[in-house]
Every structure is written in C-alpha cells, then in structure tokens.
Simulated scan of single mutants.
Amino acid sequence: MSRELVLQLMDTHAGGDVSRIVTGGIERLPGATVREQMHYLRDDADGLRKLLLEEPYGIPEMSVDLLVPATDPAAAVGYIIMEVMGYPIYSGSNTICTATAVLESGLVPKREGRQRFALESPAGLVQIEALVENGVVEAITCEGLPSYIDTYRASIHVPEVGVVTYSVAYSGGFYALVDAAELGFHLTRDEERALADCAHRIVEAIQAERGFSHYTLGDVGPLPFLHFMGPVEQVADDFYRSRSTTYVHPGVICRSTTGTGTSARLALMNYEGRIRPGDKLETVSLRETGFIGKCTRVRHEGQGQVVENTITGKSYVLARSEILVNCEDPLVECAGLHHILSTAHSSERGE
C-alpha cells in the first residue's frame, strides 16, 4: 500500500502571472495572526513553497497562495503568499487572484454588480471590491500598501552594466526603480532574457552595497525587486500609461507589471510631482497586459510622504485540480512539508 497526500488547487493568473491557490490539504497552521502563520511556514514548513514552485509540480515563475482561516473577524479569508524570493507580506497580483478564487470557490458568495469584502494578508486587512457581470468576476480592485520613496536617484557601478541611476520605493517590498531607456531597453518581449540578466546584476550590486529599513517595520530583508520603467504617456487629464517590467530576484521576469510594482511607480510619480490624488496610471507589460493603479491619498509620515493607492486588474481561472504528493517519489522532497499535510485528504492505493 502507498499513501498519497492530496492538495486541492485552483490555478489562476492576473496579467499573465500564475498564482496557484491552495484551497485544501494543509493542516491549520500555528499562529495568532496570518503574519505569524506566514512566519511558521517560512521557518518550519518551507517545503510547501518549494514543492509547488519547483519540478515536477511547478516552476519558479509561478506564485503560491495558501488560503487559511482569517484571524481578523472583519476578513472573510486569510492568505499567505509564496514566491521564488520567499514570503512577501503583500502582492497585488496575488491578491487579485486570491480574491477571484475566493469568489469562484464560493467562500464568498458572488453577487451581481459591485460587492465588497475583506481578506487578511500577512500585511494586515485588505479591502476588496469585485465587479461581477453575468456571473463572471470581471475586475478586482484591491488596496495597495501605503508606498513611499526611500531613495531618489542614487548611482551605483554595476559590473558588466556600468553606472546605473536608480530610486528605491517601498510598496510591500523594496523596489529598485530604473529607467529602461537609460539601460538601452524598449521593453519588448524579445528582451526578456536580457532584462533578467541586467536586473540580476543591478540587484546583486545594490544588495552588496547597502540594506534598507522600513520606517515602522524595520528590517524586512534585502531588496528583492527591480522595476524597469518605460516612458509615461498622458492619456487624459487624470490618466497616464507606461510600459513596465518587474523583476523578482533571483532570475524571474514577471509576466504582469505586478501590483506592488505599479504602487511603487505611483509613489515615484507623486514624489516627482507628476501625479496627485485621483490620478491613475496603467502599467503595461511585455505581454501587453496591464494593471491600473490609482493614487487615492497622500499623507506625510515619518520623514516623507506616503501614497495610499488601489490596484485594479482581472484574474482568470485556469484549472481546478488535485496534486498527489507521494513522498516515496525520488523527485519529491517532503522534508519541511509532511508535518503540515492533512491526512484527512490522503488516499491509499494498492500496488
């Protein structure tokens, strides 16, 4: 007899970035908050992230979102985000995908028109507005984290690239923001490999030179993201558009422009006096997909100005499936995983 442990999944994507939503098969995690449960996964059960982002089950370009019971009574569901770089406390594209999965799975009943509910992320409560038309989730608008500029137009020498001018924003993680044209890029799909190689060198150089500290959260780890910025086009009095590409260290160019990348751009454009509350920015990816960020409020906090914002996008359901986790398979590494797999979802078969 061989026991297979089963994970229930809903695969989704927003802007091309695939988010694999784990809807069942994991035991309840210890921790009084979703943030504490994230710390438990990171420190004691990182095998789940590795299992679903590595062969034979996944690839590093994907993300994983584990649904957990909310600890905040105002939230319908909690979720923990897992990526190749680790455990970000927030992600716009993952939030859009998770909100869609929560509606499509019936955890929050769908209603025609606009409806509001809250999710609990590791960063805290996130307000969601969903637009449902003819039973289809056509758009999700979620709060972006309050974003601000930490560093404006610093310079660094990067081996094999040269002197690079960059700014740094915090928008759920620290982002290096660089001008694509200054580095010789047009932000077309055929540049994807070269963009990843260039970004890898820049992030490595910045990480080696300095660290960053959030004004309330303190040390949140080394800078993991880089955002290539294309020229900004003004489409209307309060609407702007720009080609953009986000890199996640190590080695991943996101299919979408990312929600936190869009929030970082809003913070920079506000810092430069180019947008104000009520203005919107559409970021457009290498694959011609986009998110719309809106600057909703600017307030002064700490040593600078903080941009409150929302991100709007659409997520598509790709598949509902089960993954069979057989720890006897030589390609499957169950260390750091087996103790959180639910035996309630196991199956036995004769050999």
Rank of each mutant, 00 (worst) to 15 (best):
2 S>V: 14
6 V>H: 12
10 M>Q: 13
10 M>R: 13
17 D>L: 05
27 E>F: 00
30 P>S: 09
30 P>H: 12
35 R>Y: 15
36 E>N: 09
36 E>P: 02
41 L>Q: 07
49 R>V: 01
50 K>W: 05
54 E>P: 00
59 I>R: 15
64 V>L: 02
65 D>A: 14
65 D>Q: 09
80 I>N: 03
85 M>N: 15
97 C>H: 04
98 T>C: 11
105 S>W: 04
109 P>M: 08
110 K>N: 07
111 R>N: 12
113 G>K: 12
120 E>L: 06
123 A>T: 04
129 E>K: 04
132 V>R: 09
139 A>V: 00
140 I>K: 03
142 C>E: 13
145 L>D: 00
145 L>F: 01
146 P>A: 04
149 I>P: 04
153 R>N: 15
154 A>I: 00
156 I>W: 11
157 H>T: 14
157 H>N: 14
159 P>F: 10
166 Y>D: 04
167 S>M: 08
168 V>Y: 03
174 F>C: 08
180 A>L: 07
181 A>M: 10
186 H>D: 15
193 R>W: 12
194 A>T: 10
198 C>S: 10
199 A>Y: 05
205 A>D: 11
207 Q>D: 13
215 Y>D: 13
232 V>A: 04
232 V>H: 05
243 R>W: 02
243 R>A: 07
246 T>D: 09
262 T>W: 07
264 A>G: 12
265 R>I: 01
266 L>Q: 05
277 P>N: 07
282 E>V: 05
282 E>T: 12
287 R>M: 14
288 E>W: 06
292 I>F: 09
293 G>F: 08
305 Q>K: 14
317 V>G: 03
321 S>Y: 09
330 P>F: 02
330 P>T: 03
333 E>A: 09
333 E>K: 14
342 S>V: 00
346 S>L: 08
349 R>K: 15
349 R>C: 09
351 E>F: 15
